[in-house]
Design a protein around this nucleic acid. Structure first.
Lengths: 231, 231
DNA sequence: GTCTATATAATGATAGAC
DNA sequence: GTCTATCATTATATAGAC
């Protein structure tokens, strides 16, 4: 049962690979489709091999996933450097860029969803990758400077990724292609409020911001995060 | 092994309940602490009963969770009507209100995280519950009116819940109390960018919003959501 | 009502034949 | 390299004693 897939940069041509590579590709697709609970049986069926061969080549499920993780990250980075900087001024939607392929996008969301170190690492990676782009838009006079660029970066990224995560959770039976289609539709629906908030804000007065600035003083505090980590 | 818990409105006094209720309370705590993968053995140990008794009283794990779900929702609603409207003007943080108790908050996040119908229902419920509050702040002149109030409501809710979800995912080994402490610290860290964005917006010009309004015309489209659902 | 013991099912990992 | 067969583990559900 083959599925139509959006071309992914860096993806292997098609079938007729070594069985090991076929298993890895099948695993990426199954993990994207069902989450990391996908069984060896499911993956083996998709790769057209026996379940035992998976263990033979990868040793353990943990190792298999680790290899899939690095492969997905590699393609994700390839796509990023490959492509133009996102054409719309809207931030962060390169994560929802349809060019990266539905499996790739959903796989990454599942990494965050599954949590743990993998999620942390990808989020840090994303923050790092977005930092320059954000600074560039500020430099270009498109985006207002923030009194705490790092905090704003994290704030915006967590919110965007989180919204995609919520949407993924509400569609447990959707294929990656279906999810991406729905996410794009949802993004279209929410384009107006997003532009409103990013252009006009939400509040009618400056009072709350000014009160906050009076209260804490302008310079951002850098010690707060350490407290949170130890709590 | 007893844990210190923040008082939850509507929560039962303490121990010395019927075993059935003890199991339910233990299940809520375990589901909050470990997710819905928590085993009967873990729950039984916490309730100080045998695993078999859980099946005897609840029949299946699905039924047990269903009963926990309604109980948590009941307490959540009790807390909402109980309390004052959120004192800060910031929206949606009643979800992170420490008064609702760490277990309750994390349980609800895990419902969304686990996805499916439960997640959908809670999100719809949350949208409904926030609609009035949002309208009130608009009416009071605190929040700007939107050209599409429903879309903005969904947009803001999905982003806020999603950010909490991301944070939960990055702390897989944290207890509910630890998570709530970290979430509050994180909220404090991100207060400034949030106030900035909600007060001043993100863009320096109105150009993108105005272009969008020119392109689609002012009246919001109501047919888009149906397309997304059937996709 | 409660417990112990057991059946059953799914899954990841192992061993050895081809 | 690949498969088949088997094992070990885990977790839910069942049956029957007390």
């Amino acid at each position: 049962m083959l599925v139509v897939r959006i071309a992914s940069p860096g993806a292997v041509p098609e079938s007729d690979l070594t069985a090991r590579a076929r298993i890895r590709e099948a695993a990426i697709a199954c993990f994207a489709a069902e989450g990391f609970g996908a069984s060896f049986a499911t993956i083996a069926k998709r790769a057209d091999v026996s379940p035992g061969l998976i263990t033979h080549h990868f040793g353990s499920k943990t190792s298999l996933r680790a290899e899939c993780d690095v492969e997905v990250l590699r393609r994700y980075q390839a796509m990023k450097t490959d492509g133009v900087a996102n054409p719309s001024g809207s931030l962060l939607d390169h994560v929802a860029d349809p060019r990266i392929g539905a499996d790739l996008l959903v796989y990454i969301l599942r990494v965050v969803h599954s949590g743990g170190r993998g999620a942390q690492e990808f989020l840090e990676h994303l923050v790092d990758a977005t930092r320059e782009a954000m600074a560039a838009t500020v430099e270009a006079g498109i985006v207002r400077p923030s009194r705490d660029e790092e905090a704003r970066l994290r704030y915006l990224i967590y919110q965007s990724i989180g919204a995609l995560l919520v949407e993924l959770a509400t569609m447990p039976d959707a294929s990656p292609d279906q999810f991406v289609a729905a996410a794009l539709a949802s993004q279209r629906d929410q384009m107006l409020p997003m532009l409103e908030v990013f252009t006009e804000g939400l509040f009618t007065t400056r009072q709350m911001l000014d009160d906050y600035l009076d209260y804490v003083g302008d310079p951002p505090r850098e010690d707060a995060r350490a407290d949170a980590a130890t709590a």
